[in-house]
Computed example of a mutant assay.
Amino acid sequence: MIPFNKPYLTGKETHYIYDAVNSGKISGNGKYTQKVQSFFESVYSFKKCLLTTSCTDALEMAAILANIKEGDEVIVPSFTFVSTAIAFIRQGANIVFADSYSDNPNIDADKIEALITDKTKAIVPVHYAGVACDMDKIMDLASKYNLLVIEDAAQAIDSYHIDKNGVKKALGSIGHLAAFSFHETKNIISGEGGMLAINDERFVNRAEIIWEKGTNRAEFFRGEVNKYGWVDTGSSFLPSEIIAAFLWAQVENLEHIQEKRIKLWNQYFNGIKELKLDSIKLPKVPEYATNNGHMFYLTCNNGQTREKLILKLKESGFHAVFHYLSLHASDFYKGRHDKRELPNSDCFTECLVRLPLFFELKEEELNDIIMCIKNNFK
């Protein structure tokens, strides 16, 4: 069976883990944590980066920094992972779910303004499959209504948005805050892991305090204060040096990994496009977005077609999967969601299928998957 995902190891992970352990410093915020954070700050122009134990933790930090309180409203796409919403629910927020585009799982930026009220505090765009949301429109709305933008960039490492002036900016560097994931299903990995990117100077100092359990310990270790204590809320968000050391091996090979994944993505796109099938739609990458090769998905005409395709692929030895269930219709939230229908989100829930895509997938294996899809729709 060709799996949906297979974590890629560069060969340096255990070497750096050994080095971290041998150094005697294996708790958080050591040499490898700082190397990784400095890399992302310098390469992608994030003002400040803080590694976390997960993208969920990064989102929870963002919710604290945004000062989300009971009764505040946060606009979130319904077609996303539960962490996007639950980080703000923990702070007492009411989630206002937005629909996707009809041809793109990302939040429909043209439908956001109608959802804004005097209780709205933040917009949380999710860059699905590493493809940018329309950040020009979203940032304009945020400026108009004095809202914060928190990018859920879990899938979006090394992907970009091209603004209306033709300026290319890394995803995660545009909003006030952003959260990334290094889960084993992502382009670069640490098993579990994440990162908060802070782009607004107002949040830099407090973010570090929240990251360090509500203390100013980081300032103490830098010699900026002669003792540290409890100064704010927070939690133990920072990962161990073992996780950071593993991640550093991946970061060193980011360009190589990206080159291969994008090549596989393009092979999928061009091969399936040539089939000229009416029963499926290819992913759309808008003109203002780039593609980071995170995921290759198809959208079937209906749920029955998707089930048949997944079964056909499975019988042929290929593990394809669906993705999110619309959060507005979840058991947890459906009683609190208003009566608005979100048809595009529901369509992707019902019809989207993800194909195997990982670094070690061979070109001939990928061609076999394309042939299987062709045979399914004969």
Rank of each mutant, 00 (worst) to 15 (best):
F81L: 12
R336G: 11
R217A: 10
L264R: 04
K25L: 13
N291K: 05
A289P: 11
S173V: 02
A98T: 06
I116H: 12
K339S: 15
F46G: 03
M1S: 12
K164M: 08
N344G: 00
T84C: 14
G172V: 08
F332R: 10
A244N: 06
G175V: 04
H183L: 02
S326C: 14
E201P: 02
N94V: 07
L254D: 08
N104K: 06
G234N: 09
Q258D: 06
A98I: 02
Q250K: 09
P356T: 05
T185P: 00
N216F: 11
I188F: 02
Y101H: 15
V285I: 14
N94C: 07
W265C: 03
V251G: 01
H183M: 06
I243C: 08
F358G: 01
A142E: 05
S190L: 01
K137E: 09
I2C: 00
N29G: 12
Y18R: 13
F97G: 01
A122Y: 03
A93N: 03
N67G: 03
F348G: 09
I370K: 08
C55M: 14
V36R: 06
E241D: 12
G172M: 05
I262R: 14
V43C: 01
L277E: 06
A109E: 14
E208I: 13
F237V: 09
N302Y: 10
K284D: 07
I188M: 01
T56E: 14
R306K: 15
G293F: 00
S38V: 00
K186Q: 15
F220N: 07
S102C: 06
Q91M: 14
E274I: 00
A154R: 03
F4V: 01
L325C: 02
I138R: 10
T233M: 12
K119N: 15
R354A: 00
K314Y: 08
G172A: 10
I95T: 02
A132H: 02
N344Q: 08
E184H: 12
I89S: 10
E365H: 08
N344A: 00
H15K: 14
A178I: 06
N187H: 01
S27R: 14
I112V: 15
D103Q: 10
L309R: 01
L275P: 02
N253C: 12
A87P: 03
K378H: 09
R217I: 13
T33A: 13
S181T: 04
V204K: 03
G193Y: 03
V321C: 09
S330K: 09
